[in-house]
Amino acid sequence: MAAARTESLRDAYGQTLVEIGQNDPNVVVLDADLSGSTRTALFGKQFPNRFFNVGVMEPTMMTVAAGLALGGRTVYASTFAIFAAGQAYNAVRQSICYNHANVKIVATHGGLLVGGDGGTHQMLEDLGLMRGLPGMSVIAPADAPSTRAATRAVAEFDGPAYIRLTRENLPTVTDGTFVLGRAAELRSGNDLTIVAAGAVVARALEVAEELHKVGVEARVLDFASIKPFDEKALLRAARDTGAILTMEEHTVLTGLGALVAATTAESYPVPVRRLGVPDVFGESGEPWALLDRFGLSKERALEEAWELLRLRGKVQ
């Protein structure tokens, strides 16, 4: 994984929006005074008539988005994750999800990798909030190519979706495809499974590589599609490998790890270890150093992996 090319997910999103806009005059884009950061400004420049930067009013952006969608438009609405899923939560719930409005929320700046802005801006609860909403599709791409694919994929169905993007550039780790409801196996193995989503998928692969050096083969599953959730892939992994480590840049209380633990407990119980942010807010700091500080270091992941292997009797 060492010298993998890194790319901006936000650029990938903004560029893809422009392509979508070129092919479909029905697409409308909204933002809330962060269009330079979210890259919706690229769409706004090309299609000023179909772009509405409503200012600092995220709940109203979501209600307006719903209104446009109920009139038959395909709507993309963007701001930072803290504002999209946090500030605007009930507008998303009521106006978008309850109406089953065709609004695609693309939230940038998810998680700790926001860095310096600090805990107020590091959204760690959005995947939990959004996956709790009936009818909502929830996606956390791991790299720029899959961001492009996911941005296109959500236009293909009628109904709400939430895509969480990362501020930092990320290495390319997927083959650039995205299928809603399908987990992607990025690495095969039968000793252990690492389930991850979003920015930490690259770290999951690094952990697998370390394990490989000492003869342990970890399967790595990219669960970019958090909802709908690929239960089959998860249970197959539980059966094949007998132990699951989850990694997410999100609170462990309500995120991917919680989902994996609940799903396996119900259908095929195996030991699960959840790596993510514990029950605390983030804080200011250099983005990647924050991942280490808040429980997502490679060392910590390796410790948990060895603990799982011991539990399964695969090592002493």
């Binding site: 802005d117 600090g118 107020t120 200011s284 700091g285």
Partner: peptide, 13 residues
């Protein structure tokens, strides 16, 4: 300001 562990968070705390 904005360094890890600082009392001076990016937004006042």
């Amino acid at each position: 300001l904005r360094r890890i562990g600082s009392r001076l968070q990016g937004h006042v705390d």
